[in-house]
Amino acid sequence: MESVDRHNQEILKNAEAWQQKPSLRAIYSTFHQSIAKHLAALPYPTVELGSGVADIQRVIPGCIRTDIFPNPWIDQVENAYALSFDPGSLSNLILFDVFHHLRYPGTALQEFDRVLAPGGRVILFEPCVSLLGLLVYGALHPEPLALNQPIQWDAPPEWTPSQIDYYAAQGNASRIFLKSKIRQNLHGFRVVKVQRYAAISYVASGGYSKPQLYPTAWMPLMAAIDRLCDRLPQIFATRLLVVLEKVT
């Protein structure tokens, strides 16, 4: 098992790109707006788990930004498997590029069920496996897709949340939520929404680690290309939005 410290090393590298790429900040703002449309309207806090460097508070004011490491822009440290929040005390949990880092997603969902109020939501924003997604996340991304690896839904009995390590399987959300034959026990949640986005503008921006392939002034054109490619998700989708709601 690889040390979880690798997560923080990646976060610190990403912080540099976040400051240097206005296009990246603009694209994330669009992603966050898509997430905001699906928030449960309950009178409790909204929490983002694994916030990284992207500032979701610009779109969702008051959202509590958390991560497993303390950094200056993080509100508090949280472990997805052992959250510090009281039972039924949250309206929403947002996981942006976090679900595919959960080695035991079913165990995490049990913890999410504990802290969310009835009708509360878990909103996932993940890599999507389409024809283009296979290229982007398979050949051009260092994290594995792990499409042929088994998903261990629940942690073994002897495991504890303090034993978290570095894990990545970028294809997990697509396998679970786009292929109903392997849909797992969602531990008290129902699927409200599954939506695919082409997000060509993000791919061509180079993300955090690669060069941008278009001038920032072309952002409106890239947004138009995104809308066009959204019509053929099996070919072009590179992002997946999943909304889960706690059954009351």
Rank of each mutant, 00 (worst) to 15 (best):
Q110R: 03
P156A: 13
D75E: 07
R6F: 13
I164L: 02
Y81R: 06
Y44A: 01
V4M: 09
K37W: 14
G206F: 00
F177H: 06
A80N: 10
Q19L: 12
A40H: 03
D55S: 06
L83I: 11
Q9I: 15
L116Q: 03
K179Y: 15
D97T: 09
F189G: 15
S91V: 12
R114G: 08
S91P: 04
L102P: 00
Q163I: 01
E245F: 04
Q57V: 01
L228V: 11
E10H: 15
R6C: 08
R65W: 15
L134A: 15
A80M: 09
N148L: 11
G207M: 06
C229V: 01
D230Y: 11
K37M: 14
F31L: 13
K246D: 07
V129Y: 09
V136E: 15
S34W: 10
Y28T: 10
P142H: 10
V98C: 00
D165P: 05
P72Y: 07
K13S: 09
N92E: 14
A198Q: 05
F125E: 04
V59C: 04
S205K: 03
G133C: 08
I94R: 01
G119N: 02
H38G: 13
K246A: 03
E245C: 14
L134Y: 11
L145R: 01
I235Y: 04
I35E: 04
Y166T: 15
S174F: 07
I176W: 05
Q76W: 06
E48H: 00
R103E: 09
L228I: 12
V243Y: 04
V191P: 12
Q234R: 13
T238L: 15
A168N: 12
Q212I: 11
Y197R: 01
E2K: 11
